[in-house]
Design a binder for these strands. Structure first.
Length: 813
RNA sequence: GCCGGGAUGGCGGAAUUGGUAGACGCGCCGGACUCAAAAUCCGGUGCUGGAAACAGUGUGAGGGUUCGAGUCCCUCUCCCGGCACCA
């Protein structure tokens, strides 16, 4: 009667077939249009998790879909193999990071292959191997020579007990994760990539990325943070010399309301003021405690101390006190900020705390909030500047007060200047113009465009990363390693102690000679940020085995990536760095002719696209998380004991609502927690391997692709998996029972039966993917609108229709 | 703190421009078939009250605009992602 659906057999046969026939090998030339589909490569943690399965299934569906549509598809896979976890594992298990990483890669490759992805494994790359990172070192030396990489000091988290630099992740509540010691900020020399030189282009080109989600582009725009403001100076006399304290503001219209300036603890003025002032020196010392992470700095208590120094207001000539503020960052802008307590919420709080004066210089002129400051010209506003700041337009009147912050105090849109002498009555734009002009006349400042984006510090005081190809010579300074000496190979047999980099303790690594003068020299022992490797892997996939450069001419055929798929958590850093690297590689001439200035739309644009690659990823799909319910019991000392959902039976009432849950092992109740991201800590992960073993990869993939739109959160559901399995089984059984010749095939030979299976698989996949095809077509190929329910019901309808047919065509791909 | 998202039944989620909230699916309940179960099929299912007809109520909270708000405006709460050394 009906043959059982045995996914393991079917999938093994299919995967073997694909491997033998090299089905998914991408050709570097083709009559067909190319489609480069890339899913973000995994960090080889050791085990596949559901997020990986989702990521690669989405990419695979898109790949197979385009394959069926007649594209020359390339879907590669590789390993983001450098990074901190390998060093942690080395500490915990006493295994060298390299050995740990390579064995993880082997395990995960096996798992990935059991998923049956249409991946071209001949392009596999591993970033911790010299054949990959040597080209990164090559690019480093080029960038160093042309000034796009430079050296400066920067703050890191220093663990004073373990004598080691800590990652932000390793700083917990201001203390080292292993030692528990209070972390300090320490300034050390590092290499920086001049990403700010590309800030304007990185910002402008976002507008070309029509295939990117708007929210990602918005985040990148805000991150780059182009602002138009005024850079100006507070002059001062100190130690018999005249000098200027520079600050930058986007609210020059409030300059007349400055009542103090705040400088970073590391600012030269702070250092000077602390001389002979032990209290101030102690405060500066206190400011050094804690980590360097911005989120921590921004949320900590705002503290400050008067330096006793005074600077002069450039327009009023009044004396302005200089304070040290723990919230002012030396690495941002000038390391000093003007403070206008009346019109900045943070300054307001600071002034209230320390009893500093608050001077209102902006009045809310209108209530409707529609007024753009630019509409105001000098003298066009009458009656502005009333002392209470209340609007004249009725509605809720919120007069200015020194007691409580009001949002409108800080709004550019609603205010006009008051208490500002000649600037009274001006709106935002005209006030800024007038003030900037007056500052310029005095040579005390000018308008300036500034970016929030900072240069990218790439030095890491870590072992498991790509060595920075620099040799330090006492005579010649920092000398880049010559091409013929590349790669600088990272030694793989080391012992990790958790206290500093092993490279710094290996004379056989760092002792060398200067390539320029031949004298005794020392090799750099810092390694590069692992984001460097992930910034160009997409390009390397186009040129596997290339020994002549980062990429060869094949890159011009495949790039840009047509579809990139990955987590939203990479919306800023990784994606911005990869865009930056793409431009660096383009300007190094690696993608053929360099960019032609964009002229007109249409034909000219197409020609330009063939000549150069301005952006690496044409379309971006940011997939959602995989979440699952959590269960726990209260253990000793208020600690929760998390219980895996697989070990729990849920009881429901007559309406199907959960009323309780019991641990299967002991029948005793457990507490139902929230639904959260699958994680080790909450013990709510579902091991993909168990699902594949029990139901098969097709069920796992089918469930995961249809249970939620790709970019939304996916709630794991055992029932949903079961449903997906039943659906596939039904398709299978239907195909089987309608094929009378099957028995003939089966009775002939093993080979023939395999052939039948393949045909049946093709039927199954064909029907499923045909449905997706239809839906994708309806959705205008917009996978983000793809919806499980719509697709599933369409599949059901088709299936029902098929069941009414007695004979169907022999399927074939 | 700042930037970007989100919140609709027991669950995933529908709802073109502001026009019958809860499509479709899961789950659950009832029925058919079966010795029984599974599978399959049929019907029901926001909540409260009611045997039912029906009534009231309902899209995180509070306000507003409108003949009409899940949708637009304001304020707020909570959750998720990122914040430059996790990847």
């Amino acid at each position: 009667m009906q043959q059982d659906y045995k996914p393991k057999n079917i999938e093994t046969v299919a995967q073997t077939y694909w491997n033998e026939k090299l089905t998914f090998h991408a050709k570097d030339q083709s009559e067909k249009p190319k489609y480069y589909c890339l899913s973000m490569f995994p960090y080889p943690s050791g085990k596949l998790h559901m997020g990986h399965v989702r990521n690669y299934t989405i990419g695979d569906v898109l790949s197979r879909y385009h394959r069926m549509k007649g594209f020359n598809v390339m879907q590669p896979m590789g390993w983001d193999a450098f990074g901190l976890p390998a060093e942690n594992a080395a500490l915990a298990n006493n295994v060298p990071p390299a050995a740990w990483t390579y064995s993880n890669i082997d395990a995960m490759r096996t798992q990935l292959q059991s998923l049956g992805l249409g991946v071209d494994w001949s392009r596999e790359l591993t970033t911790c191997k010299p054949d990959y990172y040597r080209w990164e070192q090559w690019l480093f030396t080029r960038l160093f020579k042309n000034g796009l990489i430079y050296k400066k000091t920067s703050s890191v988290n220093w663990d004073p007990v373990d004598h080691t630099v800590l990652a932000n992740e390793q700083v917990i509540d201001g203390r080292g994760w292993r030692s528990g010691a209070l972390v300090e900020k320490r300034d050390i020399p590092m290499y920086f990539m001049r990403i700010t030189q590309y800030a304007e282009e990185l910002l402008a080109d976002l507008n070309q990325l029509e295939g990117w989600p708007e929210q990602v582009k918005t985040m990148q725009r805000n991150w780059i943070g182009k602002s138009e403001g005024v850079r100006f100076a507070f002059p001062y006399q100190l130690d018999g010399k005249s000098d200027k304290l520079w600050v930058y503001t986007t609210r020059a219209d409030t300059i007349m309301g400055v009542t103090f300036v705040a400088v970073a603890a590391e600012h030269p003025l702070a250092t000077r003021a602390a001389q002979g002032n032990p209290v101030l020196a102690a405060f500066i010392e206190e400011c050094k405690h804690g980590g360097v992470a911005e989120a921590d700095i921004a949320t900590m208590e705002k503290k400050g101390m008067d330096t006793g120094l005074k600077v002069t207001h450039p327009l009023t000539g009044e004396e302005v006190p200089v304070w040290i503020g723990n919230y002012v960052l030396m690495s941002y802008g000038e390391g000093a900020v003007m403070a206008v307590p009346a019109h900045d919420e943070r300054d307001f709080g600071f002034a209230r705390k320390y009893g500093l004066p608050i001077k209102q210089v902006i009045a809310k002129d209108r209530q409707d909030g529609l007024v753009d400051g630019s509409e105001y010209g000098a003298g066009t506003v009458s009656g502005a500047g009333s002392e209470d700041g209340g609007g004249t337009g009725g509605g809720i009147d919120t007069p200015f007060t020194n007691e409580q912050w009001q949002e409108w105090y800080g709004s550019k849109a609603v205010g006009v200047c008051i208490n500002s002498g000649k600037y009274d009555g001006l709106g935002y734009t005209s006030a800024v113009d007038a003030i900037a002009a007056d500052l310029a006349v005095k040579d005390m400042g000018e308008k300036k465009v500034q970016f929030r984006l900072r240069d990218w510090g790439i030095s890491r005081q870590r072992y498991w990363g790509c060595p920075i190809p620099i040799i330090h010579c006492v005579h010649c300074g920092d000398v880049p390693v010559p091409d013929e000496q590349l790669p600088v190979v990272l030694p793989e047999n080391v012992t990790i102690t958790g206290a500093g980099s092993p490279l710094a303790k290996m004379p056989e690594f760092y002792e060398t000679t200067c390539p320029q003068c031949g004298g005794v020299a020392k090799r750099e022992t810092d390694t590069m940020d692992t984001f460097v490797e992930s910034s160009w892997y997409y390009a390397r996939y186009t040129s596997p085995g290339c020994t002549t450069g980062m990429v060869d001419e094949r890159a011009q055929y495949w790039l840009p990536v047509d579809q990139y798929v990955g987590g939203i958590e990479h919306a800023i850093l990784h994606l911005l760095y990869a865009r930056f690297f793409n431009k660096l590689m383009r300007d190094a001439g690696l993608f053929g002719e360099t960019a032609v200035a964009s002229t007109s739309q249409g034909e000219g644009e197409q020609a330009q696209q063939r000549k150069s690659v301005n952006e690496p990823f044409a379309n971006l799909l940011t997939q959602g998380m995989v979440i699952a319910p959590t269960f726990f019991r209260d253990g000793a000392a208020g600690k929760k004991i998390w219980i895996n959902p697989a070990e729990v039976d849920i009881e429901t009432d007559s309406r199907g609502r959960p009323v309780g849950a019991k641990l299967r092992a002991d029948g005793q109740p457990v507490i139902i927690g929230g639904t959260e991201k699958m994680s080790k800590s909450k013990n709510n992960g579902v091991d993909p391997q168990l699902i594949i073993d029990q139901y098969g990869a097709d069920t796992a993939r089918f469930f995961i692709i249809f249970a939620a739109p790709p970019e939304q959160t996916l709630e794991w559901s055992d029932a949903g998996v079961e449903g997906a399995f039943r659906f596939l089984r039904r398709v299978w059984n239907f195909a089987y029972s309608n094929k009378s010749e099957i028995d003939v095939y089966l009775n002939r030979s093993k080979q023939a039966s395999d052939e039948y299976y393949l045909k049946a698989i093709n039927l199954e996949q064909r029907e499923i993917y045909r449905e997706m095809h239809v839906v994708l077509k309806q959705a205008n190929f917009d996978l983000q609108r793809l919806h499980f329910n719509t697709v599933a019901s369409a599949c059901m309808k088709i299936l029902k229709a098929l069941e009414q047919l007695i004979a169907i065509d022999t399927p074939g791909m």
